[in-house]
Amino acid sequence: MLIRILAALCCCSSLLAHAQSALLRIAIDANNPPFMYADSSGRPAGIYAEQLLALAQHSGITISIETMPWKRALAYLQRGSHGVAGLYSNPERQKHYLYSKPLHLEVLTVYGRKQDHRPRYNQIGDFDGKRVGVLAGWFYSDAFSQARDHGRLRADEASRDAQNVEKLKLGRIDYLIGIRESIEPMLGDQLEALGVFAVNPTYIALPRSAANLRLLQRINQALPTLPQPATSP
């Protein structure tokens, strides 16, 4: 009997140690500074990388941060091998993934060329018949998706903001939607902000599983204790 009890205790200790040392793999975009990107050495950098490092310290979860193209990050999330940080939420995604408490609020702004003298942005109908620069794999809003799917606007995709900025300067697109902190360092004297498109909270999303649900509870307990990221106004 004593041998059985000792064996059971060893088994429980082993399971507990495994749970505590479980590795959570989180993918972030490699091309979205200052929020998430790979630095010159290929290491994860940016606001979300810093938040994930702080989260690991505060929660006790071992987190591996991996930078990659955003479409690949979403594919890995769908496959169930990785979580993703910096993701927007929508009803379809909520059916498939577990969402944390918000990480940050991103201000999506509409930009145009000064020489085109375009009016201030007010509503999705302002994009009718226009070419709008966006990032591949990104969700912007339900209204934007519907307008794109019905052919009311043309969503011109790029893998990084710098490509969209260059296309806008050359007149190859009519508008650009981008995060304020990402776009404004690249504006120069040719482009201007035309109004706020949306203010979207970002989250950590995990594949649905019982183990990830337990991890999510630890994540949500730790998130309010993290230092708030500093961004430009």
Rank of each mutant, 00 (worst) to 15 (best):
M1F: 11
L2I: 14
I5Y: 05
L6E: 09
A8S: 12
A8K: 06
L9K: 05
L9N: 08
C11M: 12
L15R: 08
L15C: 13
L16S: 12
A17I: 08
Q20P: 05
S21P: 09
L23R: 14
R25L: 03
A30S: 15
F35G: 05
A38N: 11
S41N: 14
G42I: 13
R43M: 12
R43L: 12
I47K: 03
E50F: 02
L52S: 07
L53S: 12
A54C: 03
A56R: 02
A56H: 06
A56Q: 11
A56I: 01
G60C: 10
T62W: 07
I63Y: 08
S64N: 04
E66P: 07
E66S: 10
M68G: 01
P69N: 08
W70V: 08
W70E: 15
W70T: 09
K71C: 04
K71H: 06
L74D: 01
A75P: 00
Y76C: 10
Y76T: 08
Y76S: 12
S81W: 08
H82N: 12
G83Y: 11
A85W: 00
G86V: 07
G86S: 03
Y88R: 15
P91H: 05
K95P: 04
Y97C: 03
S100R: 04
S100F: 06
S100Y: 05
K101A: 13
P102R: 00
P102W: 01
H104E: 14
H104W: 08
V110R: 06
Y111R: 03
G112F: 01
R120H: 12
N122S: 10
N122E: 14
Q123R: 09
Q123E: 05
I124M: 00
G125T: 10
G125M: 06
D126A: 03
F127W: 06
F127D: 07
K130P: 04
R131I: 12
V132F: 01
V132G: 01
G133S: 10
A136T: 07
F139D: 07
F144W: 00
F144E: 00
D149S: 15
H150Y: 02
H150F: 10
H150Q: 06
R152C: 09
R152Y: 14
R154L: 15
E157Q: 06
R160V: 05
D161H: 13
D161C: 01
Q163S: 13
V165N: 00
E166Y: 12
K167T: 10
L170A: 14
G171T: 11
I173Q: 09
I177Q: 04
E181R: 04
S182P: 14
I183L: 10
I183V: 15
P185I: 11
M186P: 00
M186Q: 15
G188H: 05
G188M: 10
Q190W: 01
Q190A: 01
F197I: 02
F197V: 03
V199C: 06
N200P: 04
N200C: 09
P201V: 11
P201Q: 07
P201A: 09
T202A: 09
T202G: 11
T202D: 03
Y203P: 07
Y203C: 07
A205D: 04
S209P: 10
R214Q: 15
R214Y: 10
L215N: 14
A222M: 01
A222T: 10
L223C: 02
Q228M: 06
A230K: 15
T231H: 02
